[in-house]
Nucleic acid binder design. Structure first.
Lengths: 251, 251
DNA sequence: CAGTGGTCTAGACCACCAG
DNA sequence: TGGTGGTCTAGACCACTGT
C-alpha cells in the first residue's frame, strides 16, 4: 500500500474526533506501526502531506512535531523527515558499582567515547564541596559522550582530585580500569537519580529530540578509606536505559 | 517594574540573536527568575503579549508552549496563563523498602490518595507471569493518585494475588501497613526505573504538562518465603522526585 | 457575555542540504 | 539550484471560564 493512499483523509479524518493534528499524528503512528512507513524511510515532505490530507502546513507540522518529541521520527533540515530505527533498551544495576565499559562488554556491545573535554581545571564550588578539596586545589575532569553498539547512550562528566587522577588524558576507555591499576578504585558510591527533559544541547549530542525524557544521575564514589574519589554527573537516554535496584525491608 | 515595560522589545529583541520565540521565552524566564512574574501571578493574555512585543500570536504561543513544557507556567483555557509555584524535591531511597505513606510521614508531609480503581479483576498476562498465578485466578488491584503536602506526586497501580490481599477496598492509606497486619509484608523487592515523557492522561492527573519527564517504576516484591506478593507499576513526577541508591563494588 | 486559551488557514521568506 | 525543514505573520473561528 502506498503511503499517499494510506493518508488520504477520507479514511480517517473526521470533524468530530478531536483536533486534526492529533488525528494525523495517530494516523502516522499507525503507518509506522504497520510498517507502511518503514524505519529509515522518509515521510512525504510537509507541503505534500498538507496537499494529501487537505490540511494546512502548520497543522501538519504540529502533528509531526509530536512524533519528533516521542522519538518516532527525526527531522533534518534541508533533507527530510525520517522514521527512526527503534533502539534496544539496556538494563543497569543500581546495587553493584560497575563501569560503563565493562557493563557493555558483558552484553557484547562495543563501546566508544567521544571526548568533549579532558584536562585539569579549577574546580566549581560543587566540586570543592563534594570532593572535599582544599583552597587552590585543582581537579581532573573528563567529559565524554558514551556510545554502545554505535548508538549514543549517555553524557558523562566526571571530576576527580588530582592525586587520584593526575593525568586525565591517560583515560582512554575505562576510567575504573585505570583507577584500579593505580590502586584507587572506588568500592562504594551513592547515586541520585532524577528524570529531566533534555535541553537542546544535550539532546543533540544524544541524538534525540529536545525535551525527550532522560535520566540525570549524580554519583559520588568512595575509596575503601572513606575518602571521596569521584563526582560524576551523567545524563542517560531515557529511551535506552532501565535502571534496576534491589530493595530490602528497612527495620 | 511593570511586566509590560519589562517585555518592551527594544530592550531584548534583536534580529540576529536566533528565533524570536526563543528570545521571548528567555525574556519570560528572566522575568520569572527576577520575581517580576511572581508565582501564581498571571501572564498578560497572549493577544496582549503579541501587542506588546510586536510579534504574532503564533510566535508568542510557541514561546509560552516551551515554558509549559519545562513546567514554568501553566495554561488554563478560558482563564489565563499562570506562573507555577516551584515544588520541593523529595528523595526516596532505592536500598530500603519503604511505604510511600510512612516515607512522607517521616518528612512531616500529609499524604492523601485519590482512588482511581480498586477491586478484584481478571489478571492481565503481565500479572499472571509476574505474580505466578494459576489459570482462572483473579487479582486485587488498587490504582490511586498519591498526593503529599497537597501536591500530586505519583500514580500507583498495584496488583496482588487474592490470598495476599483478599479485600482491596480495605486499603485506606498504607498498603504495606495492612499487609503487615496480615503477616504478609514483603521483605524484598526488585525495581526497574526508566524515564518517560508523560502522556496526556497521566500528565493531567499529576498536574503537569503533557510530555514532562517522569519516572516509571516497576516493582516486584517478595515475601520472606520467596513468593511474589505484589506487582506495582508507578509513575512519579520527575520534577518532584530524586531516587537515591547506594552501590557497592561487585566482585 | 466578554475574555481567555486552543485550533486552523494561506502565504511568505529564510536556512540548509544534496546533486 | 531546487527541494526540504524552520520561522513568522494576520486573521479567523471554536471551546471554555468566570462573572
Amino acid at each position: 500500500m502506498d503511503i499517499a493512499d494510506f493518508l488520504r483523509p477520507e479514511a480517517w479524518l473526521s470533524r468530530s474526533a478531536g483536533p486534526r493534528y492529533v488525528q494525523l499524528r495517530r494516523r502516522l503512528e499507525a503507518g509506522i506501526e504497520e510498517g507502511i512507513l518503514a524505519p529509515n524511510s522518509s515521510l512525504p515532505p510537509e507541503r505534500e502531506l498538507a496537499e494529501i490530507t487537505d490540511l494546512s502546513r502548520v497543522t501538519v507540522r504540529k502533528a509531526i512535531q509530536e512524533l519528533v518529541r516521542e522519538g518516532a521520527v527525526e527531522q533534518r533540515q534541508g533533507s527530510g523527515t525520517f522514521v527512526r530505527e527503534p533502539i534496544p533498551r539496556v538494563e543497569q544495576s543500581l546495587s553493584h558499582l560497575t563501569s560503563f565499559t565493562e557493563d557493555m562488554q558483558r552484553r557484547g556491545l562495543q563501546t566508544t567515547s567521544k571526548w568533549l573535554e579532558r584536562g585539569i581545571f579549577m574546580p566549581s564550588p560543587d566540586e570543592v564541596v563534594a570532593l572535599g578539596l582544599a583552597a587552590g586545589d585543582q581537579v581532573s575532569r573528563i567529559y565524554r559522550l558514551r556510545e554502545a553498539g554505535g548508538q549514543p547512550m549517555a553524557l558523562e562528566r566526571a571530576a576527580l582530585p588530582l592525586d587520584i587522577l593526575s593525568n586525565p588524558t591517560a583515560v582512554t576507555t575505562s576510567l575504573y580500569e585505570l583507577l584500579e591499576q593505580s590502586g584507587v578504585r572506588p568500592v562504594r558510591a551513592v547515586q541520585k537519580i532524577s528524570a529531566i527533559n533534555l535541553e537542546a544541547e544535550d539532546a543533540e549530542l544524544l541524538n534525540v529530540a529536545e525535551g525527550t525524557a532522560g535520566l540525570r544521575i549524580q554519583r559520588t564514589s568512595y575509596l575503601q578509606s572513606g575518602r571521596v574519589a569521584e563526582l560524576t554527573r551523567s545524563i542517560y537516554r531515557g529511551d535506552a536505559y532501565d535502571f534496576v535496584a534491589e530493595l530490602r525491608l528497612s527495620h
